[in-house]
Amino acid sequence: MSTTKPDGYSPAAKWLHWLTAACVFILVPVAFTMVRLGEGALTNALYEVHKSVGIIAFLIVAVRVVVRLTRGAPPPEDGLSPFERTLSTWVHRAMYVIVFAMPILGFIGTSMCCAPVNLFWTIPIPITFTGSEETTGRILGIHKVLGFILTGLVALHLAGVLKHVFISRDGVLRRMLPGG
């Protein structure tokens, strides 16, 4: 783990952030849609997209955690209040935990009930888990609850971004923009 604080986010950290965000912005609407549709080809396709993007998100987040642990992160912006620093720290920590845990739980639950899990209809993921219908339901239930929590945290994160762009007019967003 890095003990020194870098001056800014590395290009890798910035791109991994935006790739994670893109995955979340695909996964959440697809999840909300697929569970509301009845049986059929569209529902099956949405589940396949959700599982595949979830696998990709997990890989991105795993690399992101390694980058964060080895490179570190810059200190919070000077103009943040103690409340903003604390809130930002805990929201980011919670999002890291959830975006790491959700794909694992989703994969385990799905492989228990609906193996094989394939990457975009083609590449089977050879790891499978077994468990009772009750265990599968619990795991996928936790996955679902984490999805709602993540949605709330992302909304809070975006509210913070908007506050910094339109009210504070400081450089917080520029720190995470590629080339910024």
Rank of each mutant, 00 (worst) to 15 (best):
residue 81 S to Q: 05
residue 62 A to I: 02
residue 110 T to I: 00
residue 97 V to D: 05
residue 62 A to N: 01
residue 92 H to R: 06
residue 79 G to L: 05
residue 59 L to Q: 00
residue 82 P to D: 08
residue 98 I to E: 13
residue 90 W to I: 09
residue 77 E to A: 10
residue 72 G to I: 02
residue 80 L to V: 02
residue 62 A to L: 13
residue 104 I to V: 15
residue 90 W to S: 00
residue 102 M to L: 01
residue 98 I to V: 14
residue 83 F to Q: 09
residue 95 M to F: 06
residue 99 V to N: 03
residue 83 F to K: 12
residue 96 Y to H: 14
residue 70 T to I: 04
residue 102 M to T: 05
residue 79 G to T: 07
residue 75 P to L: 11
residue 86 T to W: 13
residue 110 T to C: 07
residue 77 E to F: 08
residue 92 H to Y: 01
residue 99 V to S: 07
residue 87 L to V: 12
residue 107 F to W: 15
residue 99 V to E: 00
residue 82 P to L: 00
residue 105 L to Y: 04
residue 102 M to F: 10
residue 66 V to P: 00
residue 61 V to M: 13
residue 84 E to F: 10
residue 73 A to D: 07
residue 87 L to H: 03
residue 109 G to F: 02
residue 73 A to E: 15
residue 67 V to L: 00
residue 76 P to N: 10
residue 109 G to D: 09
residue 64 R to I: 08
residue 61 V to D: 04
residue 83 F to W: 14
residue 62 A to H: 07
residue 72 G to H: 02
residue 65 V to D: 01
residue 83 F to A: 15
residue 68 R to Y: 15
residue 97 V to T: 13
residue 72 G to A: 03
residue 61 V to K: 03
residue 103 P to G: 05
residue 78 D to I: 07
residue 61 V to W: 07
residue 61 V to C: 12
residue 80 L to P: 00
residue 90 W to T: 00
residue 108 I to T: 06
residue 68 R to A: 14
residue 64 R to Q: 06
residue 105 L to C: 07
residue 110 T to K: 07
residue 86 T to H: 05
residue 70 T to W: 03
residue 95 M to Q: 11
residue 78 D to A: 15
residue 68 R to W: 14
residue 64 R to Y: 10
residue 106 G to Y: 10
residue 70 T to K: 13
residue 99 V to C: 09
residue 76 P to H: 12
residue 90 W to P: 00
residue 106 G to M: 05
residue 101 A to I: 02
residue 110 T to N: 13
residue 93 R to Y: 09
residue 64 R to P: 00
residue 68 R to H: 14
residue 76 P to V: 04
residue 90 W to Y: 15
residue 98 I to Q: 12
residue 76 P to M: 06
residue 79 G to V: 05
residue 74 P to F: 04
residue 110 T to V: 08
residue 103 P to A: 06
residue 83 F to V: 13
residue 96 Y to D: 05
